[in-house]
Write a protein that binds this DNA or RNA. Structure first.
Lengths: 303, 303
DNA sequence: GCTATGATTCAATTATGTTGAACTGTAAGG
DNA sequence: CCTTACAGTTCAACATAATTGAATCATAGC
């Protein structure tokens, strides 16, 4: 099976006629016949039902048509990407990320990437998952790192890693001495949490509610990164992403919850509309994916 | 760019040598050289760095290699599927589904599919989303229809439609007279719900909690399909999937909630490991997708 | 220097794709 | 019933492109 044969076949299906396909592809009519005959002989089955007025697909033909569409399209995409390479890989990429990822994981990664690809300019926006998703769909961002987005909106999403939450305590906190801390014990002490918009807050609340009812004694702090300074000052305890704790702030202790481990999935998303990405975007996508992915690949979700 | 050229190129990269590639593909050494030269000329860039001891890839070569892998694999898969077609499409498919989908949407669809494909045997299992997901991953199921599964487990998932929930009331229920019913009003009456395991129950609870706090007056009924009979008997009201209400049971009234529309996404999943599906599975997958999808659905892409 | 290895060049050969012109079969119009 | 128009097929001739062996070049290891 040659590629040009597939293209010819597709042209026949699209135009519904050998003649028009020949015209479209600048072939003689007979060439079309020959190509299809050769293809049918090779596969040992007929692909096109030659009706009086127009051709129609057999079962096999339909299968071939549908599957070959993708192959031909991939091929064209590959060619265009190779073209972009000669033109010098360049572009502006607008990346979005949720906060702990943006502050703790991205900086080093982006430095590495931008050294490897000096032609690519990158900007980073920070926001909540729903806000980022919306901006991505509006076309204001090209790619976002976030937790599982809302569904059904033309998004391509792939989970990359899981952010584990650790209970951060002042050294002199009553719970610091306990060998094991469970979710139910959290109700008895002041818990520092982020403002309501943050996706972490939402997840955190739902997990806490499941295992121990809503926490009673809370204090809202504006940002995730500020939380640990409040813990350090002894104002209370907080559940914070493990990744933000290297190094552990002086005077604090990190503890994993025993019963209800709190964690949330984090992944990468872009618009399905342009999912077969342009070269610059593809490079960044693959780079982030390979650097951030925890497990040998994973799950694809198309919304 | 011809397919055989790509295969040759891949063989060189895999073996690290023009000679070994020639051997592997039963070509003369010179043929390999010519093919690559032609390819490089066509693309106007060099793909392979001819080192003293072994060849290495240029930037463009790496791109070509990675992308072409998929194209060649897709091509081979297509050929094998066409082969299966001649051999007579057949197989046993084990499908899983969550309850309202399995009971209300699937029967007619499966009858149609099985008439079209008499060689394919299908079994249907019913369960909760997490249970189905687990069985899918264990290899006990081939494909499942469910709500958004837990992430990061080697699943391929595509959302298909949204199940809207409608408040079903006995005709003589106090709320039946109200022109508009809001989520907060639900607290004042007995709400029939399914057992805790059911994914619908979970979603339902979380939505109700968001908008109106936990419902106080509930009654648990074993299955989704039983719910409406209890409503019919005047035991209380229930939020049930809209799809289960054709026809509306006699003596009941369906109302959409005004403030918090309750709905949940439903999609199709299979293992990523064998995502490029065998023919029988592919047929069913595409059939279910096209029959159940609400929105113009986007094609799945794997990198 | 010599030999083994791996890649390239080139003219000769082979295979393959392409084409026009003639041919078949069908549908529509008088 | 014949004609015209259209669609696809056949086939021999032609054009193009792929493949090859033998010779050549370049390098690494001895």
């Amino acid at each position: 099976m040659e590629l040009k044969t597939l293209k010819t076949f597709q042209a026949i299906v699209n135009t519904g006629s050998f003649n028009r396909a020949a015209e479209e592809l600048n072939y003689a009519q007979s060439t079309i016949t020959m190509q299809i005959q050769k293809l049918e002989a090779e596969l040992g089955m007929s692909l096109l039902e030659r009706g009086k007025q127009q051709v129609s697909l057999t079962e096999a033909g339909r299968l071939l048509y549908e599957q070959s569409l993708r192959i031909v399209k991939d091929m064209e995409l590959l060619e265009s990407r190779l073209g972009e390479l000669t033109a010098g890989e360049a572009g502006n990429l607008r990346l979005g990320a949720t906060d702990p990822t943006a502050s703790y994981r991205l900086p080093a990664l982006l430095r590495e990437f931008m050294t490897m690809h000096p032609g690519i300019d990158i900007s980073v926006d920070i926001g909540s998952t729903p806000a980022l998703t919306e901006r991505l769909l509006k076309g204001e961002l090209d790619m976002i790192l976030c937790s599982v987005p809302e569904m059904g909106k033309g998004l391509h999403y792939e989970p990359l890693f899981t952010e584990k939450f650790v209970l951060l305590l002042p050294e002199d906190h009553p719970l610091a001495a306990e060998p094991q801390v469970t979710a139910s014990q959290l109700r008895e002490h002041r818990l520092l949490i982020t403002a309501a918009g943050c996706p972490y807050r939402k997840k955190l609340e739902s997990v806490l509610q499941e295992s121990a009812g809503p926490p009673l004694n809370t204090m809202e702090i504006g940002s995730m990164s500020a939380l640990k300074y409040y813990v350090q000052s002894g104002l209370g305890m907080a559940l914070v992403p493990e990744s933000t704790l290297t190094p552990l702030p002086i005077g604090t202790i990190g503890k994993r919850l025993q019963d209800g481990p709190v964690d949330m999935s984090c992944g990468i998303a872009c618009r399905t509309a342009d999912y077969p990405l342009q070269l610059a975007a593809l490079s960044l996508y693959q780079f982030l994916k390979s650097e951030l992915a925890e497990q040998p690949n994973v799950q694809t979700v198309n919304y």
